[in-house]
């Protein structure tokens, strides 16, 4: 059941779509995402804007590659790394009692950091682990697509 290609495809579509949706608003309005990153007080000021520019594009590329089944292992691994970073950042904000926007889906969908967000990210992380463990080739579930 777990190695069923349609279950794998569904997992990829879920994670990929979430990453794509999450990236769109951040790419179009990077200053709001920069403010969100800054509010976590985890990175030096000089790095805030650079991260605010690059992270959404990483999310978009990972999402697109996951949906398309291209460079699947790399896309899944990068997605997992991003999710681990996001989860740790949210947990640290919660532990420090920061009442800030999580910055998860950009300015249009501003929501405060919460344990619910942590569990969402953990859920997505588990899906990423599942995809990387059970994907036996570069493009499971989409045989027609070839990796280049």
């Amino acid at each position: 059941m777990l190695s069923n290609k349609y279950v794998l495809l569904a997992a990829r579509l879920i994670v990929g779509t979430v990453f794509i949706v999450a990236s769109i608003d951040k790419i179009s309005v990077p200053d709001a995402f920069a403010e969100s990153i800054h509010a976590y007080r985890l990175v030096p000021d000089a790095a805030v804007n650079v991260l605010a520019l690059i992270i959404p594009w990483l999310e978009l590329l990972c999402g697109v590659f996951l949906v398309a089944g291209v460079k699947l292992r790399a896309g899944t691994l990068l997605s997992l790394v991003l999710l681990v970073i996001f989860t740790l950042a949210i947990i640290s904000a919660l532990v420090r009692g920061l009442n800030i926007d999580c910055g998860c889906f950009g300015r249009e969908h501003a929501t405060p950091v919460s344990w619910g967000k942590v569990f969402e990210d953990i859920g997505l992380g588990i899906l990423c682990l599942y995809i990387s463990l059970y994907s036996r080739d570069e493009h499971p579930g989409v045989p027609a697509v070839r990796d280049t």
């Binding site: 790419i27 990077p30 920069a34 000021d45 805030v48 804007n49 520019l53 978009l60």
Partner: peptide, 21 residues
């Protein structure tokens, strides 16, 4: 690819931001 696309898009976007906050 992400670095390149982000820098190019930021250069042309009306909502582009400074690289240093």
């Amino acid at each position: 690819l992400a670095v390149m696309l982000s820098l190019v898009y930021n250069g042309f976007s009306p909502h582009g931001i400074d690289l240093i906050r």
